[in-house]
Design a binder for these strands. Structure first.
Lengths: 208, 208
DNA sequence: TTACATATCCCATTTTTATGTGATTGATGC
DNA sequence: GCATCAATCACATAAAAATGGGATATGTAA
């Protein structure tokens, strides 16, 4: 018996999914809410196995809800629901520990399948989204994301890659050369290197 | 009226193309030969606009013929014909100034189209060959070829890219640090850079 | 044979980087 | 309110890299 909790602001869709799950062997629909403002408490009392989470909701939306849950619970499976396979949202959701990412137009039979899939450790996603994810991991990952560089550090690294010296970077950014130094020290730490050329190499190899 | 000359050892194919071209408005078949042994003279007397050149022929083959022609004539369009889209031959042909590269199984209608295409400055090639060419230009060019680095210089640059200091390079290659210096000075000249990290960046950007 | 490129080495000087140990401000989060 | 972090600056020292001048030996190509 898979306990499913739903967050969705559209009441029609809420009812539809409620009926679908209640009428299907092996699923138990434990509740639904129009936004995530009280998600942590709701989760604790209802003890769902899988949460279906709309991304676009008023007040507290799905991404925020996802973050809140993950702070206290890394076991419950969370499937994000969305109308579009929007690049940025997919990335955000994956980063924050969503287990899958489905389009709302997913047919009911598939939806049930995906829920079971997530429950048993899978990472269900529609093929268009899978393609997006692949693209991101292959060509779009850059040092900023991979190594948690701050905005400033990222700019400095960029100038480094383009062959600027400390002095030039200081002049470009209107800061002292000592500040450049301390940024670069931080960058080296984060990239686990200890020379300019290694940093440049690592940056370039990571599609900077 | 496009004047077409053909080099092809298979007499059936020679006859076929002859009939095709003679029977088509706008094309004039000016002759055919089973090898390239006399290509320069033949070309001068027949004055073709386009040469269809088989690659595999006895005696003097298509690549040799291509080179001979290009020494005296850079205007005539030359389309290479081959059974396979063999990597090395494609590369050789492109380097030596071929205008296009076609598979023999190209259907007659397409062949006519490609000849016209070449005549007007295009670079016709079948899609499988186009893919090969793209791959070569993207992934096969390296700093050694691009910047005429010597073997030693190339090794040194390689170590530089992998984050080695002068001292480490000297130890790796069993030479003095001063020799490393002078190699690197030369490398910088050839790459038109003046710092280690610029050299590394340039090398990586050129698929080293 | 002369000229040129390569590979090797040496010395000296200046500039640039790397490393360490601070301190101050402002924003964010608990 | 306190902790943390990003961004800023400072001072000092040591290591590495860049630059400019050499020299020698070898092989190749004009």
């Amino acid at each position: 018996m898979i306990r499913v909790l739903l967050y969705e602001d559209n009441s029609q869709l809420r009812d539809g999914i409620s009926i679908l799950l209640n009428g299907t062997e092996g699923f138990e629909f434990v509740g639904s809410f129009p936004d995530c403002s009280d998600i942590v408490a709701q989760c604790q009392s209802l003890q769902p196995d899988v949460i279906l989470m709309d991304i676009n909701m008023p007040n507290v939306d799905g991404l925020e809800g996802l973050k809140r849950i993950r702070k206290v619970n890394s076991d419950v499976k969370i499937l994000m629901l969305t109308v579009f396979d929007d690049n940025q949202n997919v990335f955000e959701a994956i980063k924050n520990g969503a287990n899958g990412y489905l389009l709302k137009k997913t047919p009911p039979a598939k939806l049930l399948e995906y829920i079971q899939d997530a429950q048993t450790g899978g990472a269900p996603m529609t093929s268009s989204i899978a393609a997006q994810v692949l693209k991101m991991f292959s060509g779009h990952s850059n040092p900023v994301e991979q190594f948690n560089l701050s905005e400033r550090e990222s700019t400095v690294l960029g100038l480094l890659v383009n062959g600027h010296s400390y002095k030039m970077i200081a002049a470009d950014l209107f800061i002292s050369i000592d500040t450049v130094r301390s940024h670069i020290k931080k960058i080296y730490e984060k990239l686990h290197v200890n020379s300019k050329s290694e940093a440049v190499a690592k940056a370039l190899k990571n599609n900077y």
